[in-house]
């Protein structure tokens, strides 16, 4: 890899901008019912904040904040949330991802339960999209040769 050129301006601005970007990503995930957005878009924004960290600092910074193991676990957890809510609906006696039935276990009437179920799905999708984007970028950006990986 090429040598790293430290730059005060870029590092300071990234340190300033990354927290609002991540907050905006969470907002896009949580506000997906009422405005443009949702799990995929919010997850992409969250992943892009880590990619920005990778560009401004180096790969060590990203791996210190989001370890490879944690990233892989999060990637699976999002899919688990998605499929878990879907299968929970199956267990309660409705179709797959038919959230309305969740009012039997949530303290809410069916329409509210439907909104909450969609929200849970979007959280799962957001987590998965974020960690997969980080993983893809780390592996492509270093041609799959970054340290700390077993051979």
């Amino acid at each position: 890899m090429k040598e790293r050129y430290p730059d005060v301006t870029i590092e300071t601005v990234c340190r300033l901008l990354i927290p609002p970007i991540q907050l905006f990503g969470l907002y896009v995930i949580a506000h997906g019912h009422y405005s443009p957005g949702g799990g995929f878009q919010g997850g992409c924004i969250l992943g892009a904040s880590f990619i920005m960290m990778f560009i401004a600092y180096d790969i060590g910074e990203v791996k210190r904040r989001m370890r490879e193991k944690l990233n892989t676990i999060l990637c699976a957890t999002g899919v688990l949330i998605y499929a878990g809510i879907g299968i929970l609906c199956l267990v309660l006696g409705a179709n797959y991802l038919d959230y309305g039935i969740l009012h039997q276990i949530l303290p809410a009437y069916p329409a509210k339960a439907r909104a909450l179920g969609t929200f849970g799905i979007e959280i799962g999708v957001g987590i998965t999209v974020m960690s997969v984007m980080i993983s893809i970028f780390l592996n492509i950006g270093t041609a799959g040769e970054h340290e700390g990986e077993p051979e």
Binding site: Y5, D7, T9, I10, V13
Partner: peptide, 20 residues
């Protein structure tokens, strides 16, 4: 506000990359 912070930084980064 975001554009005002991010746009000059991007210009700076591109110019510095050109210099390097």
């Amino acid at each position: 506000v975001f554009i005002f912070v991010a746009n000059p930084t991007a210009t700076h980064a591109i110019a510095k990359a050109g210099m390097d």
